[in-house]
């Protein structure tokens, strides 16, 4: 080996922290190199002196005081984890069961008493609603083409078998109540309800060609 050993290797050699093969090489070099040998010696002295530092600066009273302070802290409950009182261990299962029972009762009550959610209708502009009334197959129909729903409503047919239907256009948002849901009320006027009505299908086309509202009406009551 030419030159000197890297100092890091000498530092490792001082503590026997080097592989055996490399150690043999280094020792061979040091047998001819006084500088490396004396450096290794000084590292070994440092290491020996370092080992004597163990426990240096501490007295017996220091050790004793640590033990006393730890025991005092444990007695005061400092540093220990908060433990659940033993009485709560079985009771917490009772509390959990009660909570589940209450939740189930509330759920069942809510399911029984809840009203069905109203189906939202597609809002259509007032002037674009077209109503087409058609008699079901087999039922007599008299429909006057080109008349508005209002005209249909007011027509006085000599025949008793006249279907009457009224479709009221949806009110604008300002006309409805603050809680309006946008549902179009489609009700015949009670006063002008026909005494006898056959099965009627009212088909409402909206501005959206994909949305068609169909109302099926089946008569019943005294006139039947």
């Amino acid at each position: 080996m030419k030159g000197h050993i890297v100092e890091e290797e000498i530092a490792l050699l001082a503590g026997d922290d080097i592989e055996a093969a490399r150690r043999a090489e280094l020792e061979l070099h040091m047998s001819n190199c006084q500088a490396c040998t004396s450096l290794l010696e000084s590292y070994r002295e440092d290491r020996q002196a370092m080992a004597t530092l163990r426990g240096d600066g501490l007295r017996a009273a220091d050790y004793a005081s640590v033990g006393e302070s730890v025991l005092a802290a444990i007695k005061e409950g400092i540093g220990t984890a908060r433990r659940i009182p033993a009485i709560w261990v079985p009771l917490r299962w009772v509390a959990l069961a009660a909570a589940v029972l209450i939740a189930a009762t509330i759920g069942i009550w809510w399911m029984k008493n809840s009203k069905p959610v109203p189906v939202a209708a597609v809002p259509a502009p007032k002037d674009q609603v077209r109503v087409a009334a058609a008699k079901l197959p087999g039922a007599p129909v008299r429909q006057e083409a080109g008349r508005s729903p209002t005209a249909l409503k007011s027509s006085k047919a000599p025949d008793a078998q006249v279907e009457r239907a009224q479709v009221r256009p949806r009110k604008t948002e300002s006309e409805t109540s603050p809680h309006a849901t946008g549902i179009v009320p489609i009700l015949p006027a009670p006063a002008e309800r026909a005494p006898v009505l056959d099965d009627v299908v009212i088909k409402m086309e909206t501005a959206d060609p994909n949305v068609i509202i169909i109302w099926l009406s089946s008569p019943r009551g005294e006139g039947r």
Binding site: V66, V70, I78
Partner: peptide, 18 residues
């Protein structure tokens, strides 16, 4: 510092207990 070391040792033994 021995004072700091004693505090650290106390903490270590409390952790051991915990």
């Amino acid at each position: 510092r021995p004072e700091d070391a004693k505090d650290a040792a106390q903490e270590v033994f409390l952790k051991l207990y915990r």
